[in-house]
């Protein structure tokens, strides 16, 4: 095996993975900061502002605190499952980022292309959906192994909630796939160079947003950790770094959902009607930087909306939540899928 092929199949992906992991972990930590800060603004207060300038070192301080805290395993818990459950939660959340293309590929020299994605899998969406649905194992295991009733409740709720909302989520994503004609995320982004899919697929976008909120267990669908009823939900018994894993997993999922929504519905790194890739073809680095910035802005705007929702709405009840999932979102998603399929088949042939 030559050095080149080794680099292509092992070296570059590894480097990309390390960079991506670092960047994503950083982004997730600062998502927590942004969320707390924005929530504060929405609530007429200032949020964390004591540690460092504008409180910017707050996530690092929180991380340090969580690392130094005692790792408690309750007497009733099943120690092995209790220990590994957080890993089940955090790994899928981070793996999902592997297939997202954050920027247009960097063209260096003739034909040498460095895509801004760890691996542009041709069944990217399927990979993403299957990987993210593994996250529920972490929650169910945590609830089961804690040996306590509140986590058990939280995990049972979570399992049914995630299963219920997986279906409308998948159906809404399916309509995007129908429109783009590909499972590959970069193809889907390319298909949106004229118009982001959020406009023609407004129904699917709505369904996606609602089920994404439910998938990431946030208000108004934050029942698994519904603080006022279930204390902390499935992670009630966790402390220290293992709790931090759940915390990070939750926010990694939030960031992931924002990134996926940006790619699928908001046109990814494209600017509608401004083909800046061809305009700036002479400066490939500039193209990539601009693409990255566009992607980031869209993702942050989506995140802002997410936090805005959290700041405004109360929480649904367990049965109401499932009713919405099965009796409102699922029919709408199905209807939308049929409509898109019909249009695609008969009108856009």
């Amino acid at each position: 095996m030559t050095f080149e092929s080794l680099m292509t199949y092992v070296g570059w992906p590894l480097i990309k993975i390390v960079i991506l992991l670092g960047v994503v972990a950083f982004c997730v930590a600062y998502t927590v900061y942004i969320e707390r800060r924005l929530l504060g603004f929405f609530q007429s207060r200032v949020g964390p502002n004591r540690v460092g300038p504008f409180g910017l070192i707050q996530p690092i301080a929180d991380g340090l605190k969580l690392i130094l805290k005692e790792d408690i395993i309750p007497a009733n818990a099943q120690p092995f499952l209790f220990r590994i459950a957080p890993i089940f939660a955090i790994v899928p959340a981070f793996v999902g980022f592997a297939i997202i293309s954050f920027a247009p590929p960097l063209v260096t020299g003739a034909g040498v292309v460095h895509p801004f994605v760890v691996k542009d899998v041709n069944l990217g969406i399927l990979f993403l959906l299957s990987i993210t649905s593994l996250g529920v194992f972490g929650i169910v295991l945590a609830g089961w192994s804690s040996g306590s009733k509140y986590p058990l409740f939280g995990s049972l709720r979570s399992a049914s909630q995630m299963l219920s909302y997986e279906i409308p989520l998948t159906l809404s994503v399916l309509s995007v796939i129908l429109m783009a004609g590909s499972f590959r995320l970069s193809d889907i982004v390319d298909a949106q160079s004229k118009l982001p899919f959020a406009i023609p697929l407004i129904l699917a976008f709505g369904v996606y947003v609602i089920s994404a909120v439910a998938e990431t267990n946030r208000i108004p669908f934050d029942l698994p950790e519904g603080e006022s009823e279930l204390v902390g939900g499935f992670h009630t018994e966790y402390s220290g770094m293992r709790f931090a894993f759940y915390f990070l997993a939750e926010y990694a999922n939030v960031v992931l959902v924002c990134c996926v929504a940006t790619s699928l519905f908001l046109g990814g790194y494209k600017i509608p009607f401004v083909p800046y890739e061809t305009l700036l073809a002479a400066h490939p680095i500039l193209v990539s930087a601009l693409g990255l910035a566009v992607f980031g802005v869209k993702a942050v705007l989506f995140l802002y909306f997410y936090i805005w929702i959290r700041a405004t709405f109360p929480r649904y009840r367990y049965d109401q939540l499932l009713r919405i999932g099965w009796m409102v979102l699922l029919p709408i998603a199905l209807l939308n899928l049929f409509l898109v399929a019909g249009i695609k088949l008969w009108l856009l042939r």
Binding site: F42, Q43, S44, R45, A311, T312, P314
Partner: peptide, 9 residues
């Protein structure tokens, strides 16, 4: 009931 902001207002 989950509506956090009203508390602060």
């Amino acid at each position: 009931l989950g509506a956090m902001t009203v508390l602060f207002y």
